[in-house]
Protein backbone atom coordinates (compact mmCIF):
# COMPACT_ATOMS: atom_id res chain seq x y z
CA UNK A 1 0.00 0.00 0.00
CA UNK A 2 2.70 2.49 1.01
CA UNK A 3 4.68 1.47 -2.07
CA UNK A 4 1.70 2.23 -4.29
CA UNK A 5 1.29 5.55 -2.48
CA UNK A 6 4.93 6.39 -3.15
CA UNK A 7 4.64 5.48 -6.83
CA UNK A 8 1.57 7.71 -7.17
CA UNK A 9 3.32 10.50 -5.28
CA UNK A 10 6.40 10.39 -7.52
CA UNK A 11 4.14 10.31 -10.57
CA UNK A 12 2.38 13.44 -9.32
CA UNK A 13 5.77 15.08 -8.75
CA UNK A 14 6.79 14.37 -12.35
CA UNK A 15 3.41 15.69 -13.45
CA UNK A 16 4.33 19.03 -11.85
CA UNK A 17 7.13 19.33 -14.40
CA UNK A 18 4.72 18.61 -17.24
CA UNK A 19 2.29 21.18 -15.85
CA UNK A 20 5.10 23.76 -15.80
CA UNK A 21 5.94 23.06 -19.43
CA UNK A 22 2.29 22.99 -20.52
CA UNK A 23 1.64 26.31 -18.77
CA UNK A 24 4.06 28.09 -21.06
CA UNK A 25 3.60 26.16 -24.27
CA UNK A 26 -0.20 26.26 -24.08
CA UNK A 27 -0.71 29.61 -22.38
CA UNK A 28 -2.50 31.31 -25.27
CA UNK A 29 -4.79 28.44 -26.18
CA UNK A 30 -5.60 27.64 -22.53
CA UNK A 31 -6.30 31.34 -22.01
CA UNK A 32 -8.74 31.46 -24.92
CA UNK A 33 -10.40 28.26 -23.69
CA UNK A 34 -10.73 29.70 -20.18
CA UNK A 35 -12.43 32.81 -21.52
CA UNK A 36 -14.81 30.88 -23.80
CA UNK A 37 -15.71 28.21 -21.23
CA UNK A 38 -16.32 30.61 -18.35
CA UNK A 39 -17.74 33.40 -20.49
CA UNK A 40 -15.92 35.98 -18.37
CA UNK A 41 -15.73 39.60 -19.48
CA UNK A 42 -14.09 42.70 -18.11
CA UNK A 43 -16.43 44.44 -15.67
CA UNK A 44 -18.45 47.24 -17.25
CA UNK A 45 -17.64 49.32 -14.16
CA UNK A 46 -14.06 49.33 -15.43
CA UNK A 47 -14.46 49.93 -19.17
CA UNK A 48 -18.07 51.11 -19.51
CA UNK A 49 -21.12 49.05 -20.47
CA UNK A 50 -21.57 47.63 -23.96
CA UNK A 51 -22.17 50.20 -26.69
CA UNK A 52 -25.90 50.49 -27.32
CA UNK A 53 -26.06 53.32 -29.81
CA UNK A 54 -23.87 55.58 -31.88
CA UNK A 55 -24.98 59.02 -33.04
CA UNK A 56 -23.16 60.27 -36.11
CA UNK A 57 -22.27 63.95 -36.35
CA UNK A 58 -20.22 65.78 -38.89
CA UNK A 59 -16.66 64.76 -38.10
CA UNK A 60 -17.34 62.84 -34.88
CA UNK A 61 -19.61 60.32 -33.16
CA UNK A 62 -21.37 60.18 -29.82
CA UNK A 63 -21.15 56.67 -28.40
CA UNK A 64 -23.70 55.73 -25.76
CA UNK A 65 -22.94 52.79 -23.52
CA UNK A 66 -25.37 50.58 -21.64
CA UNK A 67 -26.21 52.07 -18.23
CA UNK A 68 -24.43 49.94 -15.64
CA UNK A 69 -26.27 48.95 -12.47
CA UNK A 70 -24.57 45.56 -12.07
CA UNK A 71 -24.11 44.54 -8.45
CA UNK A 72 -22.69 41.40 -6.87
CA UNK A 73 -26.04 39.65 -6.44
CA UNK A 74 -28.59 42.00 -7.99
CA UNK A 75 -28.81 45.35 -9.70
CA UNK A 76 -27.88 48.44 -7.72
CA UNK A 77 -30.14 51.41 -7.12
CA UNK A 78 -27.52 53.81 -8.41
CA UNK A 79 -25.50 53.21 -11.53
CA UNK A 80 -23.31 54.77 -14.16
CA UNK A 81 -23.69 55.77 -17.79
CA UNK A 82 -20.70 56.36 -20.04
CA UNK A 83 -20.81 58.55 -23.13
CA UNK A 84 -17.82 58.82 -25.48
CA UNK A 85 -17.12 61.43 -28.15
CA UNK A 86 -14.67 60.30 -30.75
CA UNK A 87 -12.41 60.83 -32.70
CA UNK A 88 -10.57 63.59 -30.92
CA UNK A 89 -9.61 65.27 -34.17
CA UNK A 90 -13.18 65.79 -35.31
CA UNK A 91 -14.56 67.21 -32.06
CA UNK A 92 -15.92 70.76 -32.21
CA UNK A 93 -14.76 73.40 -29.72
CA UNK A 94 -18.02 72.84 -27.85
CA UNK A 95 -20.06 69.66 -27.85
CA UNK A 96 -23.68 70.46 -27.09
CA UNK A 97 -26.09 67.55 -27.12
CA UNK A 98 -29.45 66.29 -26.00
CA UNK A 99 -29.23 62.60 -25.27
CA UNK A 100 -31.90 59.93 -25.06
CA UNK A 101 -29.92 57.16 -23.36
CA UNK A 102 -32.87 54.82 -22.71
CA UNK A 103 -34.11 55.17 -26.30
CA UNK A 104 -37.72 55.91 -25.35
CA UNK A 105 -37.93 58.79 -27.82
CA UNK A 106 -37.60 61.45 -25.11
CA UNK A 107 -34.40 63.34 -24.33
CA UNK A 108 -32.98 62.46 -20.92
CA UNK A 109 -30.30 65.10 -20.43
CA UNK A 110 -28.57 68.00 -22.02
CA UNK A 111 -24.78 67.87 -21.89
CA UNK A 112 -22.25 70.49 -22.89
CA UNK A 113 -18.59 69.48 -23.13
CA UNK A 114 -15.52 71.57 -23.76
CA UNK A 115 -13.10 68.99 -25.22
CA UNK A 116 -10.16 71.31 -24.74
CA UNK A 117 -10.55 71.79 -20.98
CA UNK A 118 -12.38 68.45 -20.61
CA UNK A 119 -15.07 70.10 -18.51
CA UNK A 120 -18.76 69.37 -18.92
CA UNK A 121 -22.05 70.79 -17.76
CA UNK A 122 -25.21 68.75 -17.32
CA UNK A 123 -28.87 69.59 -17.27
CA UNK A 124 -30.99 66.61 -16.26
CA UNK A 125 -34.36 66.21 -17.94
CA UNK A 126 -35.13 62.69 -16.82
CA UNK A 127 -35.16 62.60 -12.97
CA UNK A 128 -33.12 59.38 -13.11
CA UNK A 129 -30.08 61.38 -14.24
CA UNK A 130 -28.20 62.58 -11.15
CA UNK A 131 -24.88 64.25 -11.97
CA UNK A 132 -21.60 64.07 -13.86
CA UNK A 133 -19.17 61.72 -12.11
CA UNK A 134 -16.22 62.80 -14.19
CA UNK A 135 -14.83 63.64 -17.62
CA UNK A 136 -12.01 61.54 -19.01
CA UNK A 137 -9.54 61.59 -21.85
CA UNK A 138 -9.81 58.58 -24.14
CA UNK A 139 -7.11 57.30 -26.48
CA UNK A 140 -8.94 59.10 -29.27
CA UNK A 141 -11.61 61.30 -27.82
CA UNK A 142 -13.35 62.24 -24.63
CA UNK A 143 -15.72 60.46 -22.26
CA UNK A 144 -18.05 61.46 -19.49
CA UNK A 145 -19.57 59.27 -16.81
CA UNK A 146 -22.92 60.21 -15.33
CA UNK A 147 -24.51 58.78 -12.24
CA UNK A 148 -28.04 57.51 -12.67
CA UNK A 149 -30.84 56.06 -10.62
CA UNK A 150 -32.39 52.77 -11.60
CA UNK A 151 -35.98 52.92 -12.92
Amino acid sequence: MSRLKSVLAYTAAVLALLIALATFTGMDSFGRKLVSVTGIKVSPWMIGGEVVSVIEHEGYQTVIHRPVFDGLFSERKKGMLQIDWTPQQGLPARVDELIDFDRDGKDDFHIVLNPESNKAGLEAINPRVVSIEGCYTLKDGRAARLSLYHD
Binding site: T38, V42, S43
Partner: peptide, 16 residues
Protein backbone atom coordinates in the same frame (compact mmCIF):
# COMPACT_ATOMS: atom_id res chain seq x y z
CA UNK B 1 -15.83 36.36 -5.81
CA UNK B 2 -17.09 38.95 -8.33
CA UNK B 3 -16.10 36.62 -11.20
CA UNK B 4 -18.07 33.79 -9.63
CA UNK B 5 -21.23 35.87 -9.17
CA UNK B 6 -21.12 38.30 -12.08
CA UNK B 7 -18.83 36.54 -14.56
CA UNK B 8 -16.84 39.73 -14.87
CA UNK B 9 -13.29 40.62 -13.91
CA UNK B 10 -13.11 43.76 -11.83
CA UNK B 11 -9.87 44.97 -13.35
CA UNK B 12 -9.38 47.43 -16.24
CA UNK B 13 -7.25 45.03 -18.29
CA UNK B 14 -7.64 43.16 -21.53
CA UNK B 15 -8.98 39.60 -21.51
CA UNK B 16 -6.86 38.20 -24.32
Amino acid sequence: IPAAFTRTIIFPGSLL
